[in-house]
Nucleic acid binder design. Structure first.
Lengths: 219, 219
DNA sequence: ACCTGAACACCGTTCAAGT
DNA sequence: ACCTGAACACCGTTCAAGT
């Protein structure tokens, strides 16, 4: 498993092959099937290992809104460190790694005190946001690797590309293009989480403190 | 292009091959490279065709919140009718189909009157939700097809699977399992959009009417 | 019982040869 | 100029043969 994750981290999903993994483990390609039943299972197990680790690292705060922020950030960083996870997750519905994420989000949604009939939709909104942003960042990272550019270059290239879009067809993307080059992925990700949590807390039973008061003190 | 979409609709992404497409078009496999430069490009073009059509179908209402609801529903239905689109989108960052979706969301976010510094995060939250749910549903649909089950059967199977999870490890997923079998994907999707829009409208300049008043009259 | 690695059925892509 | 389709370099997966 560690060998598989090494290969994925080094060369992305294309870098993990039954042949390359066999070479890494100094064995034959067929031998791997004695331990795992398909490549799909291998990807699930590898993703689960990453997510389980990120999960262990996230501390559970007193206020569930703080916990959601911390957990979401942990996931963001895990996707950032292992770009292949975000892309892999979208291909395994109802499988262990995704259930883990969904469950943690759901626990905190419940702790916030949202009415039972809104729990599902609220959890789904946060869950999709976390996984979606992870997937986007992963795709960007892989595209950047394919073009042998670093992240700043990719964003700059994307910014130029969007700025060059036809303002009549894509008015928003065109106008927002310049910001793309300088924006902070992580801060924007967190801002999105705050918007979601604010929306979820509106008219719920236990909005004890404003979200702003919960943020870690700025240094 | 129409032939490619036909193949994708019939057998999913695995059904579109340069060989199968060549057979459908009564030509040789190599000839396709005269019109398109890679399979990746082919998927982008096919996805763009679907999204452009869904985009044309969505009407622009007076209130941007109504427009977002309508557009999001249109996207949901397009993902539902063409399950391969959701999965394909997660592998094409900054490409034409996604820009189209992001731009439409952004235009409506701007029309709602959110402060400029919050536009990006707000648009990203809605965008990721739409694409994320589409991707999940697509993955579910493809998993269902692989097992030759219809959607009700898949959800029922997933409900049983989740209900059987260890309540200590997955308390939320375990408790929410029974609902899975009977829930309405489309209604839940819309509920999530409403939560997002509510959150985005909180403390923004132009929250003219409550969201509830904007819904189409129940029949 | 477990590993080996050639073989199989596929895939996207290329390119000399045809028209 | 455009199409053809065999050939190439891969891939995941299998399975008789070894230890």
């Amino acid at each position: 498993m560690a060998a598989a994750i090494d290969l994925l981290d080094r060369d992305g999903e294309a870098g993990l092959t039954f042949k390359s993994l066999a070479a890494q483990l100094a064995t034959g390609a067929g031998a791997i099937y004695g331990h795992i039943s398909s490549k799909s299972d291998l990807m699930v197990a590898a993703s689960d290992a990453i997510i389980a680790e990120a999960h262990r690292g996230s501390v559970c705060a007193e206020d569930p809104r703080t916990s959601i922020r911390a957990f979401a950030l942990g996931m963001f960083d895990a996707f950032d460190a292992h770009p292949w996870v975000g892309a892999a997750l979208t291909r395994m519905p109802g499988q262990s790694p995704l259930v883990r994420v969904f469950d943690t989000v759901g626990q905190n949604i419940r702790a916030i005190g949202v009415p039972p009939e809104k729990e599902w939709a609220s959890a789904m909104a946060v869950f999709n946001y976390i996984v979606g942003v992870g997937g986007q960042n992963a795709a960007n990272a892989q595209a950047a690797r394919a073009l042998a550019m670093d992240r700043t270059e990719t964003l700059a290239a994307l910014a130029i590309s969007w700025s060059g879009l036809d303002p009549a067809t894509y008015p928003f993307a065109h106008s927002v293009g310049p910001q793309l080059g300088t924006h902070d992925d992580r801060a924007d990700f967190l801002a999105g989480i705050d918007i979601l949590v604010t929306g979820i807390c509106t008219n719920c039973t236990a909005p004890r403190k404003s979200l702003t008061a919960l943020r870690e003190p700025t240094t």
